[in-house]
Amino acid sequence: MTFEDLQRSWKADIDRPPPAIDRDALLRELTQRCARSEHLTRRRDWREYAAVVAVAVGFAVLWPRIRTSWISTIGVIWVAAWLVLVVITLAKSGRVKPLSSDSSTNDFVRQKIEWCDRQIRLLHNVVWWYVLPAFVGILLIAGGKMLPHQRTAFGSYAAVVFVLCGGIVWLNRRAARLHFKPLRDDLVRLSEEL
C-alpha cells in the first residue's frame, strides 16, 4: 500500500457528510452544556467562599466567650488574617486565564503543563496557606481558653486537630500525586515529541 493509497482512504473517510440531525436541538444542547459548565464553576467558587464566611461567623459567635484571654484574642485575629489569605489564594487561582484550545499544539501543551504545575503547587503548598495557619490559630484560641488549667484536655484537642490537619495535607498531596503528576508527565512527554 502506497502513501497515495492511504491518502485516498483518508479522503474517502473524511468526505462523508454529517448525518441528518435536528440542528436546533444540537445547538440548544451545546448552549445549555456551556451554561451548565459555567454555572458549576461559579457554584464551586461560591461554595468555597461560603465555607470561609461560615468559619468567620463561627468565630464571631465565639468571640464574647473567648475575648477575656489575650492569647485567644491573638488567635482570633490570626484566624481572621488566615481567612483573608484563603480568599486571596482562591481568588488568585480562580483568576487564571482559561486554556485556549485554538493555540498551536505546542503552546497549548505548554499552557496545560503550566496549569498542571499551578495545581500541583497549590496542593503541595496547602500546608502553608491553609493547614498550618488554621492549626496555629485554632491552638491559640483553644490554648488561651484552656491553659494552664486543662493541660491534658488541651493536649488531646491539639492531637486531634493535628491528625485532622495531617489528613488534609495527605489528601491534597495524594491528589497531586495521583491526578496531576501523571497528567503532567504525559504532557511533558507529548511536548518533547512535538
Binding site: 436541538a25 444540537l26 501543551v109 501523571p182
Partner: peptide
C-alpha cells in the same frame, strides 16, 4: 488546532471527563 489539541490531551484527562455530565441526545445521535 482545536481538534488536535483536544484529542492529544483528551486521554490524559479521561478521569475528569468521565465525572462530567454526559452530553444529551443531540450529540450522541
Amino acid at each position: 488546532r482545536v481538534a488536535l489539541n483536544t484529542a492529544m490531551t483528551w486521554r490524559r484527562d479521561l478521569e475528569t471527563r468521565r465525572k462530567r455530565l454526559p452530553i444529551a441526545v443531540a450529540i450522541e445521535e
